[in-house]
Design a protein around this nucleic acid. Structure first.
Lengths: 129, 129
DNA sequence: ACGATATTCAACCAAATGGGTGAACAATTG
DNA sequence: CAATTGTTCACCCATTTGGTTGAATATCGT
């Protein structure tokens, strides 16, 4: 159990970085280290509030963390959730390679498509229910 | 030039895979090879049209291609665009590591934060433009 | 205590998203 | 040609998104 939770989190992370502004914020933070909201906002042609919202999106995807010191909120990048993304893509690619490999064997043996074995489970998705 | 175009494509790909249903479709296609729209749709508790739309999203992100044979549309996964995603994450991580490394040196030398060299360019974003 | 600064909250808005339904279109089959 | 099958198109609908502005809240400096 709990795979859908993982799925959910993966969706959240991917959605968070699917926005160019948010990617840029993340890159900036990774490059320069923790920055204040205002400092960050100053670099974009966008209202402070807009940036504040973007930060919150990144925050709930756990791609950034916040350290509040007095009235200043220090925003810091955290690349940990990216590993889940890597894992997913990696798995996808390995399945892909496996299938190609198997397809190669099948062709070599001259087995027809209908006769070849069913590929085994992928334990991730809301999948083909 | 053309980095924003790359950015745009990256956004499209990430957004496409940020939906669990679409990720599942992609995984299924990778596992089982090209499938018809109806076949694909049959696996989800969702209308044929909904799946058709999801496929179109994946298609415009170039994550799947379509081969139309008569009235049948064969949908096939294409993991090529995933490389762009990997590249971005990879770059992000290497910047991250670089900064940590530099930070280590700085600490070792006892230089203050304000004195340390400015990190060099990241040539991707709509960035702190 | 007061004014300035840093940030969020709340409301609003236009546009995009994810879903549904019914009609249209294309190709295959009888 | 008529019926059936595979798929998209055109709408409709509720929700989310990305942005705005203005007010509220909290902290700092004087």
């Amino acid at each position: 159990m709990g795979e859908q939770l993982q799925e959910q989190r993966l969706s959240e992370v991917l959605k968070a970085v699917s926005d160019a502004t948010r990617r840029s914020i993340l890159t900036t933070l990774v490059q320069e280290g923790p920055l204040r909201v205002t400092e960050l906002a100053g670099r974009y042609d966008m209202s402070l509030n807009a940036i504040s919202k973007h930060i919150k999106v990144l925050e709930s995807a756990h791609l950034v963390t916040r350290r509040t010191i007095g009235r200043v909120h220090l925003i810091e990048a955290d690349l940990d959730p990216v590993r889940a993304v890597d894992a997913w893509f990696g798995q996808l690619r390995s399945i892909w390679d496996l299938r190609l490999e198997r397809l190669g064997e099948v062709i070599a043996k001259g087995v027809t498509r209908d006769e070849r074995p069913v590929p085994d489970g992928n334990k991730d998705d809301p999948g083909p229910g």
